[in-house]
């Protein structure tokens, strides 16, 4: 816990320094655009220093998950990032279908039949509702979907 506090405290001090630099850099009045960054610099400095106080060290410990859980979280987030990354080039419907399918297979022991049926239902329904009915300008890929 001690270490986490030191890291967070240092981070806050860094943000305080950043706010101060920004306040000094801006071309405006101290009663204008510079005011809030300056105030924040002071606040961050105080809170950062507060993290080094011994009282905080006694607070509850962070419950970091074990390795398999950590891997699962990383995997799901990685798939999500990948989905957003390929969405513009692949198109909404294909990318969404892939995304849903991968997660369904990974998160539960669905058979391929069930997973594919669910994927088709979710991807098609969201395509129709959001892109078609609500007219959201979601990207279309090479397939035009």
């Amino acid at each position: 816990m001690r270490r986490a506090n030191l890291v967070c405290g240092s981070l806050l001090l860094a943000l305080g320094a950043l706010s101060l630099v920004e306040a000094l850099r801006l071309k405006d009045d101290w009663q204008g655009a510079r005011l809030m960054p300056a105030v924040l610099a002071v606040v961050f400095a105080g809170l950062g220093a507060g993290h080094f106080a011994p009282a905080l060290a006694a607070a509850e410990r962070p419950a970091w998950p074990d390795v398999p859980s950590r891997r699962r979280v990383g995997f799901v987030f990685g798939v999500l990032v990948l989905y957003v990354a390929v969405l513009p080039s692949l198109g909404f419907l294909p990318a969404t279908a892939l995304f849903v399918l991968v997660l369904l297979r990974a998160l539960a022991a669905f058979s391929w039949t069930v997973a594919l049926a669910l994927t088709a239902a979710i991807a098609l329904a969201s395509h129709v509702v959001f892109k078609h009915w609500l007219g959201m300008p979601l990207p279309s890929g090479p397939l035009g979907l």
Binding site: V76, F99, L103, L104
Partner: peptide
Amino acid sequence: YAVMAPLILLFSVL
């Protein structure tokens, strides 16, 4: 939840 999770993430993106 295995069905809800992808749905929630999809809705979050949208």
